[in-house]
Design a protein around this nucleic acid. Structure first.
Lengths: 219, 219
DNA sequence: GTGCAATCTTGCAGTGCGTGCAATAAAATC
DNA sequence: GATTTTATTGCACGCACTGCAAGATTGCAC
């Protein structure tokens, strides 16, 4: 029995690949549907698999955990073309990294319908967002790695430890602003402002906050 | 059979309470011991319970999860006297909240031996730190709540939504700096610098970073 | 110290996530 | 159409964690 035959899938890709994409999509939809209609507590892998019309074992061939299926793939910097620009750039580092992130977040459009539903679900079950932190931690490491590469290029006199330390500060600070944008996005489903714009705002507002607390002490 | 009869416990507390404390301590030690000697993968609840000389079921009477036993209780602002000062204070908000956190972290001394071992274990198994993020998320919420109270007092003209939004920005930013301090503490077991001092440093270095990226734009 | 109430410990049975493995089914390749 | 590659599935595990009820301990009053 072909799972999720109602899902539109690009042609020209070979039956196997098309089915894989369809199945994946089917699981993603099933996961959200089950959470929405039966609540997070009843959203077991068995139940999601039943709705997606696959075996529970197959579920784990597609997603490493239940959360991933509900919340979708973890954001990543991989394949982001802005990254190399950022590493070579010599402008202020925080706005630079903001640009990388904004670029990535705009690329995240995938399926607006799923996205909207995920937002609703995350708002309804905040623990999902918390659990997600764990997976998003990889993203934080990517940020740190990229920032480290840039810092070592920009300041060759820095020791590796210094660069790594500062890179982490950059990554953590940026990540905090991204999280602020994310929360704002969850809380106010304002179609007028994209996640990218919210990230932009978060960086400038964060900077204002810090500046108002620690007046001008540039080294 | 009395579990962990080798653990020193304050007198004058009633047998029941003394035993409870001893058992708790015994589990905390057993958890670290098992992780240290058999590795995180083999650190099952059953094994920890065996070493602590209690039943696996009792384990969960003391700790809600394995992580809590390994990493110890989650930090909290509850009962921190600095909090009320902070809420009433009208100085720069970030240094204020830094002070609250530093005060709390200094209070965290509990058992230096366990602390040192936890640091080693966390360094050896970074996934523990990641998992911990979930529990520490409560701390973040406490920060936001406290910051919200202060902001509503300081700026009565703010709407609740504005105050909550800004409070979250404060909490997330502060939390980022705390995490930086935490990572530094894990990485460099430098007895000369306490966690409190590292937090202090993280805040000023974070402020410098932001200032260097967003030159003077105080509102 | 005896008896009663409160509290702790424990075993048991059960739920759910996640994994390795090997058999089967289906698609790709020739 | 036969062969190779890859996907699906069932099965058997291990492990975290929970509710429940029985039994053991402790606290307390007298």
């Amino acid at each position: 029995m072909a799972p999720a035959s109602d899902v539109a899938v690009p042609e020209q890709l070979g039956l196997r690949e098309r089915k894989r994409i369809a199945t994946r999509q089917s699981i993603l939809r099933a996961a959200l549907e089950v959470v929405r209609e039966r609540g997070l507590d009843n959203a077991t892998v068995d139940e999601i698999s039943r709705v997606a019309d696959i075996s529970p074992r197959t579920f784990f061939n597609y997603f490493p955990s239940k959360e991933e299926a509900i919340l979708g793939e973890t954001p990543s910097l991989a394949g982001n073309p802005e990254v190399e620009w950022f590493v070579a750039d010599r402008g202020p580092i925080l706005p630079g990294i903001a640009r990388v992130i904004i670029d990535g977040s705009n690329r995240l459009l995938s399926d607006p319908e799923l996205l909207a539903e995920r937002r609703a679900v995350t708002k309804l079950y905040p623990e999902l967002g918390v659990r997600r932190m764990a997976s998003v931690h990889n993203f934080e490491n990517e940020l740190a790695e990229v920032a480290g590469r840039r810092l070592r290029g920009e300041f060759p006199e820095m020791t590796d430890a210094e660069a790594a330390d500062r890179a982490r500060l950059v990554a953590l600070t940026s990540f905090a602003f991204v999280r602020h944008a994310w929360f704002a996005w969850i809380d106010h489903p304002d179609a007028n402002r994209s996640l990218g714009q919210l990230v932009e705002e978060a960086f400038t507002r964060g900077a204002e906050l810090v500046a108002s607390s620690y007046p001008a002490q540039v080294g």
